[in-house]
């Protein structure tokens, strides 16, 4: 089977997405937001929560909306006419078309995410920041976290892709996703189900970032989480003795929750299997549609 049509559609979609203002503005906006976040928390927040905070913006808010909009568009609204006239009246199967469109969206979303998050995480990991206790973030933990967030982004693109395909109207699909997915996400978060809820996964990310190769929280190249917390407590105690007791500070979002039972296979299956199911359903739905 020749891959020429699939690659042609993929290239066409990538070109179109790359030229769209939405993607360009998203890239610019996310880079700017990341810079401001880093600048604001540079001397305050430890490495793991700081990276987790950066990733939160892609997982939950605000870039969730952009990912949804990008995922919805391929086979909805007026695009269907152009599709039928130009592409699907050619010797191309609907699966080839859908797969290429989906792959293009996934590639763009991951491209923007990695272009922004990877350099930011590397800078945080490599930089020696004065006044901030050293954290036990590992390169493996960073790669694992980026992979997990990528997996969730692929899931979100596929969710939007499926909803757009089923509902046909892009605006309706966006509204349904925003008003259905967020409440579901919050409910799942109540049970700390990081394998289903991106909010919970965000909270688990500091632990993931400190995971060394092999999964054991060793002390090679940095402090373990317990050590880092102990040092932070000690620093706080010393500061209280010398400067006086500060106003009680609220516990950070990333300090809440208990994710010591974090399981990588469970999380991969939790997002991977629904992704496959949603893509299969979208394909089945589109294959039966009259154009």
């Amino acid at each position: 089977m020749s891959l020429m049509p699939t690659l042609a559609i993929l290239g066409h979609e990538l070109w179109g997405l790359g030229a769209s203002w939405l993607v360009r503005l998203w890239l610019l906006g996310s880079a700017l937001a990341t810079f401001l976040m880093l600048a604001g928390d540079w001397t305050v927040v430890m490495s793991a929560p700081l990276i987790a905070r950066l990733l939160f913006s892609f997982l939950v808010f605000p870039w969730f909306f952009v990912v949804i909009v990008l995922g919805i568009s391929p086979v909805t609204g007026s695009r269907l006419d152009a599709l039928a006239d130009g592409i699907l009246s050619r010797p191309v199967t609907r699966f080839e078309y859908l797969f290429a469109c989906w792959a293009a969206r996934v590639a763009v979303v991951l491209g923007v995410f990695l272009a922004v998050a990877l350099p930011a995480a590397a800078i945080i990991y490599l930089a020696a920041r004065k006044g901030v206790p050293q954290d036990s973030v590992t390169p493996y933990g960073i790669m694992l976290s980026l992979l997990l967030v990528s997996l969730v982004l692929v899931f979100l693109v596929t969710l939007a892709f499926f909803t757009g395909t089923v509902l046909r109207k892009p605006m309706l699909a966006a509204v349904v996703l925003v008003f259905a997915w967020f409440p579901i996400n919050i409910v799942l978060h109540e049970f700390q189900l990081e394998e289903f809820s991106p909010i919970s996964l965000s909270q688990a990310l500091p632990d993931v970032l400190r995971t060394p190769w092999g999964g054991d929280q060793g002390t090679d190249g940095g402090l373990s989480r317990a050590d880092a917390e102990a040092i932070a407590r000690l620093g706080k105690f010393v500061a209280e003795l010398t400067v006086g007791a500060p106003a009680p500070r609220e516990e950070s979002f990333f300090d809440k929750g208990d994710y010591r039972d974090f399981s990588l296979p469970r999380v991969v299956l939790g997002y991977g299997v629904p992704t496959l199911i949603l893509f299969g359903l979208a394909t089945a739905c589109f294959a039966r549609r009259d154009l």
């Binding site: 020429m4 049509p5 179109g16 007026s78 006419d81 152009a82 130009g86 050619r90």
Partner: peptide
């Protein structure tokens, strides 16, 4: 197939469009 009022990707030039369709036809 020639539709009544063909809808084209307006951002492409004719050569690019025909090249895309040629690839779709393998």
């Amino acid at each position: 197939y020639l539709p009544t009022h063909p809808v084209f990707p307006g951002h492409l030039r004719p050569v690019e469009y025909l090249d895309l369709l040629g690839k779709l036809s393998r």
